[in-house]
């Protein structure tokens, strides 16, 4: 056994030596990740401790699963999980649908117009969420926002946008789609550009209508790409886009019923209560569930399109 292991080690070292130039090329990145991602992993103990600033990591008392009990004992866990999953699911479905539709449409128009549309549709993608939150405020401000001014002009009651959770799932969906659709559409458009022209020409000769071509050629041939992007997104379903949920809602407490997601909750727990143990517990919950979803997603991807599996 020992001899075998030694032989194995020697073999590994030989391999490394043989590829030493490649090892050197990968070294800066690997070292970086080691220092910035792997060393801080010792923070894993936090959810199991009652963290006190004056005692620090190792001396703070162990509390077992109390931090988790706190999280799941209140109705918070259900609310934030529900919001995160439902909103993200809506985001993914709508984004996929809209982007795909835009891509198919871009494919229908001339190259020159494509360029103009691309530039315009891409603009929101370039804005930071901070800037987008300013834009939202300009639209929804209670006293001066454009939306309320239009409502007033129409004789309707102005709404207290930042007080009423009702429309917010829709508003967040709009914001998310608005910011990202242009970008996603270009990805699908790129996929369409890669489809062999001959398929379409053949279909044309057979007298297929344009709509039939979309249904029978474009969409089936895009489906691997759609599946991969979709599954990758599903894998991150427990991770809210913090900027979207925090900045856009201006962290208005009244909107929590509709907009509080795991990430904002964790952030608030840390900021308001200073309770690091509790917020780490929420983080671990997210990681564990996310991990299994990614594993499952990866498994599915490997089945469909092995080259595209993540590992």
């Amino acid at each position: 056994m020992a001899a075998g292991r030694e032989a194995q080690a020697v073999k590994t070292i030989r391999t490394i030596w043989k590829h030493r130039e490649l090892v050197v090329l990968s070294l800066p990145g690997v070292l970086f990740l080691l220092v910035f991602s792997y060393i801080p992993l010792y923070g894993i103990v936090l959810p199991f401790k009652n963290f006190r600033y004056d005692l620090g990591f190792w001396k703070s008392p162990w509390v077992g699963f109390r931090n988790f009990a706190f999280l799941f004992g209140s109705d918070n866990a259900w609310r934030i999980t529900r919001n995160t999953v439902l909103l993200n699911l809506a985001f993914i479905l709508v984004m996929t649908g809209v982007a795909l539709a835009f891509a198919l449409m871009l494919f229908e128009v001339r190259r020159r117009s494509v360029r103009a549309y691309q530039t315009a549709m891409f603009l929101p993608y370039f804005l930071s969420w901070v800037v987008v939150s300013y834009i939202f405020l300009a639209l929804l401000d209670m006293d001066r926002g454009l939306a309320n001014r239009i409502l007033e002009a129409l004789g309707a009651e102005p709404r207290l946008w930042y007080n009423d959770p009702g429309p917010w799932p829709l508003l967040l969906l709009l914001a998310n789609t608005w910011k990202g659709a242009g970008y996603s559409a270009i990805i699908y458009y790129a996929g369409l550009m890669n489809i062999d022209r001959e398929y379409y020409e053949a279909a044309e000769i057979d007298g297929a209508t344009r709509f039939q071509q979309i249904r029978k050629i474009s969409i089936p041939l895009l489906s691997p790409l759609i599946t991969i992007l979709f599954l990758l997104a599903i894998g991150r379903i427990l991770y809210g886009n913090f900027d979207l949920f925090y900045n856009l809602t201006r962290n208005s407490t009244l909107l929590y019923p509709a907009t509080d997601v795991i990430d904002t909750f964790v952030y608030r727990a840390l900021r308001v209560t200073g309770d690091i143990g509790m917020s780490s517990a929420a983080g671990i919950y997210q990681s564990v569930v996310g991990f299994f979803i990614v594993l499952a997603a990866n498994l599915v991807v490997r089945r469909i399109h092995p080259e595209n599996s993540l590992f």
Binding site: M105, L106, V109, A120, M121, I135, L139, W178, G182, E204
Partner: peptide, 29 residues
């Protein structure tokens, strides 16, 4: 030849509509 006029017109309408939506908020700012 393989582009249908109706679909193309619809595409232009939707795409320019969305493009305007993308630019408008910036103009507001």
């Amino acid at each position: 030849s393989r582009r249908s006029g109706a679909i193309r017109a619809l595409s232009h309408v939707v795409l320019s509509g969305f493009s305007i939506l993308c630019i408008l908020p910036l103009l507001l700012i």
